[in-house]
Structures are given as C-alpha cells and as structure tokens.
C-alpha cells in the first residue's frame, strides 16, 4: 500500500501560483478557498531585504490534530496517508480548522452557486445559460461527486455543499486514477514532487534523502507528509505580501 507524500523544492519555486490555479480548476473551489496557497514573504528592511515563496498545501499529517478533534469522524486519515473529509458526515462545527496549525481548512460559508465568483458572473444570464446549460460552475468536474477509496465515501470535495468543511485532498480523484495531483502536474519548474514515501527507492524518497528536507512547524508534532527542500521555515518576522483577495 503506497503512502503518499509531497516534496516542495524551494530552490525552484517561482511563487507563480500556477499550482493554486490548477487546484481551483481541478476541484472547482469557490471564491476565497485556497486548498493550495502560495505565500510570498518579505523579510528584513531595505537593502538587506530577503524574499521567499512558500507553497502551502494541506500537510496530510500522520499525527493529524484535525482527525483527532473531529467529533463525528468526518475527517479521517487513510492507510495511503491522505487525510480526507466526508461531506456527508461533516456537521460543519469547524473544529478541525481551529485545531490545524497550518490554516489549510475552508468552510463553505454560502451556497455553491453564490461561491462561484457570482459577484461578477451571473450564471443565470441567458447568453451564458445557452452555453453552460445551467450548470454552475460550467467547468464542473464530475469526479468530485464520485465515491473514492476502499471506504467508498464522497471525499473529493463533493459539490462544496453549504455548511461543510473542505481542504486539499492531494487530488484523491486523480491519484486514485494513477495521475498526479493537479498542482504537481502543472508546476512549470517541477518544484512540486509527489509519490510513495514508503518505497525507499521512489523519486520522492530519494529526493528527500539526498537533500536536507524539513517540514513546517515540526515542533507542533503533527508529523506532516509534506517536505520542503531549500529555503528555511518562515518565522514571524516574515511579512506576507501580495495576498490574494481572500475574504468572501
């Protein structure tokens, strides 16, 4: 049984956020929902300023605080390492979001139709309806509603129903069909790698072995499955610049 992990090569990451976009298109996430978010940091005053980029997917921790606190078991961790949310069992208490030290959880504050950029696009416009046939978002990925894994649960995000939690799923619908997560697939400089860390000869394992890989917030004891090579962990003197329009 594979155990999936992701490695981010910060020596290569351009901070271009193509991974953020690929994730949003693949998973149809709503406005302000960044399952993958890329920090752009500035640190230090002119002229000693240093910049750094930090892609932040869900860390799919082995000792996951979110799985521990979930009152109904809607958030669970699979043998292959992926931490998933079952939207049919989630009661929307948002406890997982507050237990998570990385801030990777997003709650569906509004109905799916309203969260799909409807402040600009009116999906009911007859011209648009003529083309989209009333589906919103018109680019809806059918895989998101299917059941995945041996446990057979709708864990690919479903249709982002109002009132349930969601977060990066390592693109469970893609991984189970043998392809890579959308962010890994799209990175123009192969800064993101993904693979089976339980196989010591897999490219991911070798890459981690050959470089000093570190993890985010190791002191929190969450044992994340996302490793970083190059750069260094961000400190609180870092200031995030060029933030996306993230408030819904």
């Amino acid at each position: 049984m594979a155990k999936y992990a992701m490695v981010v090569d910060l020596n290569r990451c351009q901070g271009c956020r193509a991974c953020t976009e690929a994730c949003k298109i693949e998973n149809n996430t709503g406005q302000g929902m960044f399952w993958m978010h890329v920090f752009r940091f500035e640190d230090g005053a002119f002229p000693e300023t240093r910049m750094s980029f930090l892609p932040r997917p869900c860390q799919h921790c082995d000792n996951a605080p979110c799985v521990k606190v979930c009152p109904t078991g809607a958030r669970f961790k699979r043998e292959d390492g992926i931490v998933l949310t079952d939207p049919d069992r989630c009661i929307g208490c948002r406890y997982c979001e507050l237990a998570c030290p990385y801030g990777v959880n997003y709650f569906n504050w509004q109905k799916p139709k309203d969260s799909q950029y409807s402040d600009v696009i009116s999906w009911d416009d007859p011209d648009i309806q003529a083309i989209t046939g009333g589906a919103y978002p018109p680019y809806k990925n059918p895989d998101l509603d299917k059941e995945w894994g041996p446990e057979g649960r709708r864990t690919a995000g479903g249709n982002h129903a109002k009132g349930v939690m969601e977060k990066c799923t390592f693109c469970v619908q893609r991984v189970e069909q043998g392809s890579l997560p959308a962010c890994v697939d799209t990175c123009p400089v192969t800064a993101l790698r993904f693979g089976d860390i339980s196989d010591s000869e897999s490219p991911v394992s070798r890459f981690i072995r050959e470089n000093e890989a570190w993890s985010l917030l190791e002191e929190a004891g969450t044992k994340p499955s996302v490793f970083y090579v190059g750069g260094k962990p961000p400190s609180h003197s870092y200031k995030e610049v060029e933030r996306p329009k993230a408030r819904v």
């Binding site: 504050w109 309203d114 009132g163 408030r247």
Partner: peptide
C-alpha cells in the same frame, strides 16, 4: 443564506475567526 450572514470567516488566508 448560509453562515456567510454571520461575521465569522475562515482562519488563515481569509483572516477571520471561525468560532
């Protein structure tokens, strides 16, 4: 309308409070 009617928002990128 969903809990967007409240003042609560996600922690982190959305810079809100979920509780």
């Amino acid at each position: 309308t969903g809990m967007i009617a409240t003042g609560m928002r996600n922690v982190g990128t959305m810079g809100g409070a979920s509780w």
